[in-house]
């Protein structure tokens, strides 16, 4: 099973954290929308609550499940933490105890909300896109991309540039 950090799980579970789900439409073009009800399940999967049956995202998620396409979720925290999770939609709950749980949860958050589908997305990869961390890695691995003015002798910085 994919290793997922506590930091990322906490971000996903925090409703104040911005989450965006990107899917592919019938032409293969990306379509990204906020996913405010995205959450992490005890089974180590993402749960995306899709309120509307005919939304582009709901149809794209179905297309992904049917034809084995991936979707991606971006999580962006208040301190600039950023993660991109790609995964496969593996199950669409439209009834049963789990659906009922999420239906009631959504209705407790939004007045008179409906729920079309509780999508289960199995993560297949996680990429840390947090700038402060990625910047260090990039500058270590690709030192020839750094602009020289940042390395000037009289340039003062507290940040680490090239080891």
């Amino acid at each position: 099973m994919l290793q997922v950090s506590e930091e990322l799980i906490d971000l996903i579970q925090n409703r104040a954290v911005v989450k965006v789900i990107a899917t592919l439409d019938e032409r293969g073009e990306p379509y990204a929308v906020p996913a405010p009800f995205l959450q992490w399940s005890e089974r180590g999967e993402l749960v995306h609550l899709e309120p509307l049956e005919k939304s582009a995202t709901n149809r794209n998620l179905l297309r992904s499940l049917w034809f084995g396409r991936t979707v991606s979720v971006t999580v962006y925290g208040p301190l600039g933490e950023s993660f991109v999770i790609s995964g496969h939609p593996i199950k669409a709950h439209i009834c049963g105890p789990l659906f009922r749980h999420y239906y009631q949860q959504l209705r407790s958050i939004i007045h008179d909300a409906d729920l079309s589908t509780a999508w289960i997305i199995k993560p297949i990869s996680i990429t840390d896109e947090t700038y402060s961390r990625v910047k260090i890695k990039e500058e270590d691995e690709f030192p020839f991309s750094v602009h020289l003015d940042r390395l000037r002798a009289d340039h003062y910085t507290t940040e680490r540039i090239l080891s």
Binding site: L62, L65, W66, I90, K91, A92, H93, I94, C95, G96, T117
Partner: peptide
């Protein structure tokens, strides 16, 4: 006594 019917994972 048998299951009334089945659900696939796409609903």
């Amino acid at each position: 006594l048998r299951p009334e019917s089945l659900l696939l994972r796409d609903g």
